[in-house]
Design a binder for these strands. Structure first.
Length: 478
RNA sequence: CGAGGCAUGGCGCAGUUUGGUAGCGCACAUGGUUUGGGACCAUGGGGUCGGGGGUUCGAGUCCCCCUGCCUCGACCA
């Protein structure tokens, strides 16, 4: 960076964590609240979430899902039914013990996730093969009493969606699990411009109570991995415990096969950490609350410029998410920094010089490039430009991920890369959880996923040297 | 939850060592001049020093407890 534009934000290179917090607070995405570990999502940050919701919800509907809402409270007995599940969540469940002054006969958990309460209803609703599949999604917040928190990435309460489906056969459930993983991949890559690795979680890393967990893993610009979304094939673990049975066509009583899948407001954190720079946030046009910010440069012709900028606003508002910053109390330069900090993809400057030539000046947030465009071409140009920015942001992020992915064939090399180079490490693995644990203990990196796109790097496990089963990704993660 | 650090107008900080009744920059308000990369002048408002307790004639400053935030680790979307 040739010049330091934004004074409020700590340089990324200086202190990545502080930079991240600065971008969120100064960019007015969120703020700390009086409640430990809980943040307030401010209007600008919430608008990003709303855009994400819209784009995701459309995809859910297109794949046949319907939204519903289940209770926030889960009776303790219900939560305890599936042993593996409660064991996984026990340390982070918040409990309600009193109603008013009276102590409850049975404690109520505040949902850390809704498998149990939803399953209890499914057992009531599902009787016949004709009732299947059940394809339900819920938008809600969940609570996990986290020990250490960080805005968007890990908070005690967070917003998410959780899909819960029930199927007639194992194959159908597996198909659904993979379909939703693909929906997530498509969503984050297309709309959030976040490249991801699609794959399966190891036994150690899978969801408590799942048969198999699939994941999309993204790389943040400090080289750490972030689990961006998960899709679980729950098998029949829950249906057996919650007695979700149906009478199949062959006259036999069978347990349903289930899935669950979710993404959360953590994705906002992923967008910040993947695309942001020293000037602040950089938002992909598809989810940016403001795609084009109009900044009038008054010069000596304040009234005329103001009138023209209002005209431009009217012209553009039916095509783009656009706002006019006609505040008088700030200079143009101040506004430039402000909107760059907030990640607005395109700035439109209009001043006396542009007016004289019937044009406007567009400035790209992603590259800083300045382009003069004739007013007559503006709408077409902008729509192409926004697509271009979206594509370029994905390309940049993809390049960063590729550049920071290293292939290793020895444990020494793996340790060295994790310690000194950061990023993802590709290596062969024998499939033994003990080798996985050794990597974690000796390097701090975890097995992020077993990618669908396999490569044969070598035939030996990077840890123990035994015959390798799979190529996997290791990385330090959030 | 373990180790370390921090907490003073909205934000960033000084004042704490050697207790004496709170200051600077930015931001904010009003008026004026300005406006193509965080403008300038003038005037003005705002804090009781994270919370509680203690020592003292007197505490932002010393002692104890609590809380929150940040970093690292353990655990997790």
């Amino acid at each position: 960076m040739e010049e330091k534009y934004v004074k409020e934000i700590t340089a990324k290179s200086e202190d990545f964590s502080q930079w991240y917090v600065d971008v969120i607070i100064k960019g007015e995405l969120a703020d700390y609240s009086p409640v430990r570990g809980c943040m307030v999502i401010r209007p600008y940050g919430y608008a990003i979430w709303e855009n994400m919701q819209k784009l995701l919800d459309r995809r859910f509907k297109e794949t046949g899902h319907k939204n519903a809402y289940f209770p926030l409270f889960i009776p303790e007995s219900l939560l305890r039914k599936e042993a593996e599940h409660i064991e996984g969540f026990a340390p982070e469940v918040a409990w309600v013990t009193h109603g008013g002054q009276e102590e409850l006969a049975e404690r109520l958990a505040i949902r850390p996730t809704s498998e149990t309460i939803i399953c209890s209803m499914y057992s009531k609703w599902i009787k016949s093969w004709r009732d299947l599949p059940v394809l339900i999604n819920q938008w809600c917040s969940v609570v996990r009493w986290e020990k250490s928190t960080k805005p968007f990435l890990r908070t005690a309460e967070f917003l998410w969606q959780e899909g819960h489906t029930a199927h007639r056969t194992e194959e159908e459930a597996e198909e659904e699990t993979l379909l939703m993983l693909e929906v997530y991949r498509d969503f984050v890559e297309t709309e959030l411009a976040l490249p991801v690795i699609k794959g399966r979680k190891s036994e150690n890393e899978k969801f408590a109570g799942a048969l198999r967990t699939y994941t999309i893993e993204a790389m943040m610009s400090d080289g750490k991995a972030l689990q961006a979304g998960t899709s679980h094939n729950l098998g029949q673990h829950f249906s057996k415990v919650f007695d979700i049975q149906f009478l199949d066509q062959d006259g036999k009583l069978k347990y349903v096969w289930q899935t669950s899948w979710g993404v959360s407001t953590r994705l906002i954190g992923a967008v910040i950490m993947t695309h942001g720079d020293d000037r602040g946030l950089k938002l992909p046009p598809r989810i940016a609350p403001i795609q084009v910010i109009i900044v009038p440069i008054f010069g000596q012709q304040k009234e005329a410029v103001l009138e023209k900028s209002r005209e431009l606003y009217q012209l553009l508002k039916n095509h783009f998410r656009v706002e006019l910053d006609d505040r008088d109390e700030h200079t143009p330069g101040w506004k430039f920094n402000e909107w760059e900090m907030k990640g607005v993809p395109v700035r439109l400057e209009i001043g006396p010089r542009d007016m004289a030539q019937n044009q406007v000046l567009l400035v790209r947030r992603d590259t800083g490039e300045k382009i003069s465009v004739k007013e007559a071409d503006l709408i077409n140009y902008l729509s192409t430009l926004l697509d271009d920015i979206q594509a370029n942001m994905f390309k940049e992020a993809k390049k960063f991920m590729d550049d920071n992915t290293t292939t290793t064939t020895s444990f020494e090399e793996l340790k060295d890369v994790v310690a000194n180079k950061k990023g993802f490490v590709k290596a062969m693995w024998c499939g033994d959880g003990e080798c996985e644990k050794r990597v974690k203990e000796e390097t701090g990196a975890t097995l992020r996923c077993i990618p669908f796109d396999q490569e044969e790097i070598s035939d030996k496990c990077v840890v123990c040297g035994r015959k390798a089963q799979k190529m996997v990704y290791f990385a330090k993660s959030y």
